[in-house]
């Protein structure tokens, strides 16, 4: 397996994000089920982490000084599998086995079946606590590694997220950076209709976090926020990324029904054409 090529070059990262989206759509169409919308909305963020920010070694997934990534919104598993495959953790052909019997690519991430997955997730609201535990342990060991945790916005309706938000602040976890994918949609509709989560920035501020508010599809803003977050000392950072569910495919964008529905064969062809046309 080739070592991961990382760069801060925005053009490079945008190209990677495009490739990530192509693989997500292909694997979901092949699988016949899975979470399209939330995988696409987080695609630019995950690309920035794996192709630029995180110190990691795909050929040595247990390297003690690696930065950790916890996918708290476990249903975006297709995104995680894609960035892991494209950075060289395992062969890309495995992506075709998503959700199939005995595949290591389970419907939600299973850490014991695939290299590069730090912990199994899927039941929402638990990832930030796990990330806190990692950050506490790394600090005890004076290990310079950082911990990144990606949450969904609907997920923040889980009370445990706010227990964890208190903990990170109480223990001054400045080696932790949370990212909330604010795509404003959840299974039953708009977050504001199902269970209001706003004002999001005020909530995180009130819990003692340093906040960054960005456009979660603007690669420049993403990498800037990730760089700045590293400089914040004495408190945890959260990047509040406003995104569009289904981003990258015009007919999926902002559509609540594409939370858990995959593209048909025809939709896949159209989507891939659109993505091919988006090159700069």
């Amino acid at each position: 397996m080739a070592a991961v090529t990382q760069s801060r070059d925005i053009y490079f990262l945008k190209e990677q994000a495009r490739a990530v989206r192509v693989e997500i759509l292909r694997m979901l169409a092949q699988a016949g089920s899975g979470h399209t919308g939330g995988s696409l909305s987080s695609a630019d963020i995950a690309t920035a982490l794996y192709f630029y920010k995180m110190r990691h070694r795909p050929d040595d997934p247990k390297w003690p000084e690696r930065d950790r990534f916890v996918l708290s919104k476990g249903h975006a598993a297709p995104l995680l599998y894609t960035v892991l495959a494209l950075t060289g953790y395992f062969d890309k052909s495995l992506l075709n086995t998503l959700r199939k019997i005995r595949s290591p690519l389970q419907g939600h991430p299973s850490s014991k079946m695939l290299p590069g997955i730090e912990v199994s997730t899927g039941s929402l609201g638990q990832g930030l606590s796990i990330a806190n535990g990692m950050a506490l342990g790394l600090k005890l060991d004076r290990n310079p590694a950082r911990v990144y945790c990606l949450l969904g916005d609907g997920e923040t309706q889980e009370g445990q997220v706010w227990e964890a938000a208190m903990t990170a602040s109480h223990y001054f976890l400045d080696n932790l950076c949370a990212i909330v994918d604010l795509n404003e949609l959840q299974i039953d509709g708009r977050c504001s209709d199902v269970m209001k989560i706003e004002p999001v920035p005020d909530k995180w501020k009130a819990f003692g976090w340093h906040i960054f508010e960005i456009d979660g599809h603007d690669m420049e803003q993403i990498v800037d926020a990730l760089d700045e977050a590293e400089k914040i000392k004495g408190k945890p950072s959260v990047i509040l990324a406003r995104t569009i569910k289904g981003k990258g495919v015009s007919f999926f964008e902002g559509k609540v029904e594409y939370h858990g529905i995959v593209p048909t064969k025809e939709e896949l062809e159209l989507a891939l054409k659109e993505l091919a046309g988006n090159g700069e």
Partner: peptide
């Protein structure tokens, strides 16, 4: 906050 405690314990175990 018992739920947070258990998952945090999980995180601590993941770093040895």
């Amino acid at each position: 906050a018992e739920q947070d405690m258990m998952a945090t314990a999980g995180g601590l175990s993941l770093v040895g």
